[in-house]
């Protein structure tokens, strides 16, 4: 044990938002961690699991377990992907005791990024500075499956120059929901617009979240509405100087 951590950047960050992954690595290294990136990593399997394709999800989950078997601690820039590993892998392997044992061992090693900082690294002030008015969007899986509520807010509170304004309601879904966003596009879009009204109500310039998927939904809808509000992952805020 020591200061080694492995990144699981998620497929979405890898393919669409690489800067989020770089920012996360930057923050961790600045705190003195040695960061590695297991090259075999791909996806946690959630898209298949949430779509009802359990056999396919199991296949991808097995790959995840193998890829990160040797890692001591794994940090993830997503509450949703973290919860997939820590809360749903076990459901997939109920009938495979050996794999289930691996899953339970893995559950203890996987951390959502903000939780890792406050619980493991024990820091709230990472020395960031960002002059901005922001609002924070609670990703549903981070909030309800992992119970993450205060950690990101405590971290944001220590960012110099930053003002956090809570939106009302804060805990309502942005409408992403994986394949839900395209299977029920009109409904998903309506949910996003309600979220955006809550965001605009704060007067913030920036929406911060722990989940790239929520941010994609929110930014996609903001952009479509021609609104000049940006989205940032918490890691990007914390990497700001």
């Amino acid at each position: 044990m020591g200061n080694q951590v492995s990144l699981f950047v998620t497929c979405m960050v890898d393919q669409l938002f690489p800067k989020v992954g770089m920012a996360m690595a930057d923050v961790l290294e600045r705190l003195g961690y040695r960061v590695d990136f297991p090259e075999g990593q791909t996806c946690c399997g959630q898209p298949a699991f949430n779509s009802g394709y359990r056999a396919e999800a199991r296949t991808v989950a097995r790959h995840f377990l193998k890829t990160f078997e040797a890692s001591e601690r794994i940090v993830v820039p997503s509450g949703s992907c973290t919860a997939m590993v820590t809360h749903h892998f076990a459901e997939l392997f109920q009938k495979e005791p050996e794999t289930l044992a691996l899953v339970h061992a893995m559950e203890k090693k996987v951390y959502e990024f903000a939780t890792f900082l406050t619980e493991v690294a024990g820091v709230e002030d990472v020395g960031a500075r960002m002059e901005d008015v922001v609002t924070f969007h609670d990703g549903c899986h981070g909030l309800r499956e992992l119970g993450i509520k205060s950690a990101p807010r405590r971290l944001l509170a220590h960012v110099k120059g930053l003002e956090l304004r809570e939106m009302v309601p804060a805990e309502e879904c942005c409408g992403f929901g994986g394949t839900f966003a395209v299977k029920f596009a009109e409904l998903s879009g309506a949910m996003a617009r309600t979220k955006i009204e809550a965001i605009l109500g704060t007067g913030a310039n920036t929406v911060v979240s722990l989940d790239p998927s929520c941010l994609m939904q929110i930014q996609g809808a903001l952009s479509r509405a021609g609104l000049n509000v940006r989205t940032m992952h918490l890691a990007e805020v914390l990497a700001s100087r």
Binding site: D14, P18, K19, A181, A185, G189, G220, S223, R224
Partner: peptide, 25 residues
């Protein structure tokens, strides 16, 4: 078409980055 069309019916798409995370890393 398909999911792309459905996504775009309500929202904009993120631009494709010049490099993936693993390439940057």
């Amino acid at each position: 078409v398909g999911p792309m069309k459905a996504w775009l019916s309500e929202r904009d798409l993120p631009p494709s980055p010049s490099k993936s995370f693993r390439e940057m890393w």
